[in-house]
Design a binder for these strands. Sequence first.
DNA 1: GCCAATGTTAAAGATACGTTAAAATGGACA
DNA 2: TGTCCATTTTAACGTATCTTTAACATTGGC
Lengths: 225, 225
Amino acid sequence: MSDKIKILIADDEPDILEFLQYNLEREGYEIILAENGREAITKAKAHHPQMILLDIMMPELDGIETCRELRNIPEFKNTLIAFLTARNEDYSQIAGFDVGADDYITKPIKPRVLISRMKALMRRFGSEVQEENVSLGSIEIDREKYLVYKDGEKLSLPKKEFELLSLLASKPGKVFSRKEIMSKIWGNDIIVGDRTIDVHIRKLREKIGDDQFKTIKGIGYKFDV
Amino acid sequence: MSDKIKILIADDEPDILEFLQYNLEREGYEIILAENGREAITKAKAHHPQMILLDIMMPELDGIETCRELRNIPEFKNTLIAFLTARNEDYSQIAGFDVGADDYITKPIKPRVLISRMKALMRRFGSEVQEENVSLGSIEIDREKYLVYKDGEKLSLPKKEFELLSLLASKPGKVFSRKEIMSKIWGNDIIVGDRTIDVHIRKLREKIGDDQFKTIKGIGYKFDV
DNA sequence: GCCAATGTTAAAGATACGTTAAAATGGACA
DNA sequence: TGTCCATTTTAACGTATCTTTAACATTGGC
């Protein structure tokens, strides 16, 4: 699974976006850009960033409001959110924290300072991502414990099988294309043969149950009860 | 034990100390004061504050060094540490984060901003409350005394082994990835080889019991009964 | 019935982990 | 300061397990 940390940056000044993108990508982060608050929310939903940097002053939806809305979406309740703000804007600072921000960063932004602060935030909070557990029919998946229960019976699957099951079960009934499975589990850089997926599916069918895994020929697989 | 949140403040200017003490006590915090870094470390050990504010420029031991020393004491590995710094001291900012600080606060300090920031930090921190003692099955861990009891028999483990056990036992059943273990026990700056963790696990298996420590290949380890 | 896509199987390949001993580090103490 | 000892880390190697491949069988849509 691709493990680059994704950061969403929202600012209405293209110069700043470009500047941050350049500096952060060089550090190995994956950057997603947005030009206003509305776009930031849309892109956050699409890309699931671990961290979000918001300019306070933006058209469409300002940073404060954007943050408030994001915090109301369960997925982003624990995402790191930091504000970009001009010096001396103390009002923003207070309002920002009250709305659930984790930090604010004053402009002009110095890349080294920014990166240090981000690392400090992530060091402390980053690993606290708690993944949800899935329960469908007789199958239960405990992501934290890396365990699968089938009719209460404890199964411990190898990594790839677990990830595959975990992926398919994250949206029961949804058909995952082979492409999608590949990119989500192996990442976009690693290329594996087509038979590889089949083999893992086979193992899962053996262990979990034949009928739960349905093949949609020419498309992909789905998990269902 | 008093349930007030304790904050240790170290600064060599009595005015600032008094100012902060007044404002923070009014908010219901318990304040411990220190006039230099050396005193800060002594008092931290005595009072176990949840949060520490350090001035950068102090006699005896400056803030940066104090922070570094504190971070080397296991008890304070996860304590919130923030620096008090004059505006534009960017050097301090960087050095501060690299040394493991969680935030820096620029002087002149505005009480409302300070309190907001502290709350932002603690909001995150709150969920991370680690209990003093853990007891699972035949194992008992006394974090304060750095002791482990196995079937009532006292074991005194070396530091790293203790920390590793303590971490794994903090969430029994949860799989801790190697990455997670590394960052929680060694920090993000120190890099140790992969085999290092194995060796410590081995020692623990020897001393505590083979079956309690389970390997999840490709992921990490978990502790269970 | 044809053909491309998928299923099956076993074996090769890769990788992570276990184990051990030895080297490096660091603290206590003379 | 140097010596000693406990602790920590490294490095080398073996091994079990997981992952992928490849060859061949089977299936299902057209």
